[in-house]
């Protein structure tokens, strides 16, 4: 098993931490993981992206030019990474602010309106977990409890009371992710 994933969106949207939680989930599940952000001037100007690889074997390069899965959270990210999904791969996008929805016949496309759901839950911070819940619903490459165990590992103890809320968001994500046809 090897999943090469790019997550891309607005800076400040939590893209890097979403990647971190995913990487930690891989770590607690005993996988090899790498997390590689776009850095320097590339991270200026409002967009941010991070490459996460989760694999059974040692990972050679953390930098990729094409991906198994692209998670795109705004229009510029969608435009940039849609062509870089490998044939047979997958794209997951949040519909918020998307004017030109993705069209590609050789990949599977999912839509997850996580931003709207987070607003509905009155908590923008659980946006991350909604997306990750959706991801693991459609590609269950990590065991069910990995996300929760990753949260226990990454969150400082004083925030552990927030974990149930985050796991609720994961469940919401599993509910709302929809395949586009």
């Amino acid at each position: 098993m090897k999943k090469e994933i790019i997550i891309s969106g607005f800076g400040g949207q939590g893209v890097l931490s979403m990647g971190k939680i995913l990487a930690y989930s891989g770590l607690v599940a005993g996988k090899e993981v790498t997390w590689m952000p776009a850095y320097g001037p590339e991270q200026r100007g409002g967009t941010a992206n991070v490459t996460v690889i989760v694999s059974d074997d040692r990972i050679s390069s953390p930098v990729l030019s094409s991906y198994d899965i692209a998670i795109v959270l705004n229009q510029p990210s969608l435009d940039k990474f849609l062509p870089k999904v490998k044939p047979g791969g997958m794209l997951i996008y949040d519909g918020n602010g998307i004017i030109n929805p993705p069209t590609r016949g050789d990949i599977t496309i999912y839509r997850i309106d996580a931003m709207a759901k987070a607003a509905e839950m009155h908590n923008n911070k659980v946006f991350n977990m909604i997306v990750l819940g959706g991801l693991l619903r459609v590609v269950p490459f990590l065991p069910d409890d990995a996300l929760e165990r990753a949260l226990y590992k990454t969150l400082p103890e004083r925030h552990h009371d927030l974990i149930p809320l985050n796991m609720k968001a994961v469940d919401e994500g599993k509910e709302i992710i929809k395949k586009c046809v």
Partner: peptide, 10 residues
């Protein structure tokens, strides 16, 4: 190099 410096792994 920059990539080793910037990447996370276990």
């Amino acid at each position: 190099d920059g990539i080793l410096g910037q990447m996370m792994e276990s």
